[in-house]
């Protein structure tokens, strides 16, 4: 009969699982590119204060709109600030705020979605109609309202972004829960008399976790774009903090003769979004493959 060694089936630690997923993601070209871009950006965000050749807020009118040169690699902007310095530092705020924003979105969206999926009935109906109502409000208008009332501090931006981007996650989490809820192991847990909380934690979350995480990763890139739009409109980061959205906004009027001041932040922003998107795709595929793995052949 079966004589496979038990070591083959040892329960794997969480770190091992994560590294396994990362290796799977990096084994495809698109996943590798995405991961490299993302890691590059994260690394840059951490190290840019030490790498920056100039002070990001040093204004010097004599150096206004200089073309790229060996001294100022990406040229200077309309206030004479070094574009290279500002570009490598411009992702820091955006990355931090949107990362924590996505975490909040994941948490509340995921939990509410799972809860609605499990409980069903009237509660589900009412909550979902409220979520639908919020989905119908243009998020940027609502954000502008919140920001103009409460200010543009990080403490306001993170929960506000988290709230608006969590609405979509509610729907995904609820749908994923619906898939699981009909399975017999949930019925079995109910028949044994487990509480709703225990069913959510033990039976549902392990089965919907992947779907929600992938959705969260996608939301992160959308939120980044949204946050940059806010900055572009002047409601995100306040000057003189370097930020891509703000930089694009400031330099766009001069695009016809000082293209460098616009191009650098655009490349920064779009490469990060592309990187996150590719990573999220590879992440989804890696988890998908993992889920369908059968007994080792």
């Amino acid at each position: 009969m079966e004589t496979k060694k038990s070591s083959e089936f040892k329960k794997k630690s969480i770190f091992y699982k994560i590294s396994e997923v990362l290796v799977t993601m990096a084994s495809k070209p698109s996943g590798f590119i995405g991961l490299s871009i993302l890691f590059f950006h994260i690394l840059l965000a951490f190290s840019s204060p030490y790498l920056a050749p100039y002070d990001f807020k040093a204004i010097d009118p004599s150096l206004m709109l200089q073309a790229p040169s060996s001294e100022y690699w990406f040229g200077t902007d309309s206030l004479g600030r070094d574009v290279f310095t500002r570009t490598i530092m411009g992702g820091r705020t955006a990355l931090t705020i949107t990362f924590f924003g996505s975490l909040i979105a994941l948490l509340w969206g995921g939990l509410l979605g799972i809860f609605c999926g499990l409980v069903g009935g009237k509660v589900d109906d009412v909550v979902m109609r409220i979520v639908d109502a919020f989905l119908s409000i243009p998020w940027i208008l609502a954000m502008l309202l919140i920001v103009s009332l409460l200010g543009t501090s990080t403490e306001v931006l993170i929960p506000a972004l988290g709230f608006f981007y969590g609405k979509g996650i509610v729907r995904v989490a609820r749908a994923a829960t619906h898939d699981v809820i009909a399975k017999d192991f949930i019925v079995s847990a109910r028949a044994r008399g487990h509480s709703n909380l225990s069913i959510i934690w033990n039976e549902i979350i392990p089965n919907v976790r992947d779907a929600i995480l992938v959705e969260g990763a996608m939301r992160w890139s959308w939120m980044l774009l949204g946050f940059s739009s806010l900055s572009f409109l002047g409601f995100g980061v306040s000057p003189p903090t370097p930020d891509w959205g703000l930089m694009i906004s400031n330099a766009r009027g001069l695009m016809s003769f000082a293209y460098w001041a616009v191009i650098a932040p655009i490349v920064g922003l779009s490469s990060l979004i592309i990187g996150i998107n590719l990573t999220a795709d590879a992440f989804a595929k890696a988890l998908g493959i993992d889920r369908s793995t059968k007994a080792p052949v």
């Binding site: 399975k183 192991f185 028949a191 044994r192």
Partner: peptide, 26 residues
């Protein structure tokens, strides 16, 4: 089932048709 007490719950157990569905894959 929610109103049953623990000893009644314990006394009656279920086995399902399809073990693929009745065991949590994770």
């Amino acid at each position: 089932v929610k109103k049953r007490n623990s000893s009644d719950l314990r006394a009656i157990q279920l086995i399902f048709q399809n073990p693929d569905e009745s065991l949590n894959p994770n």
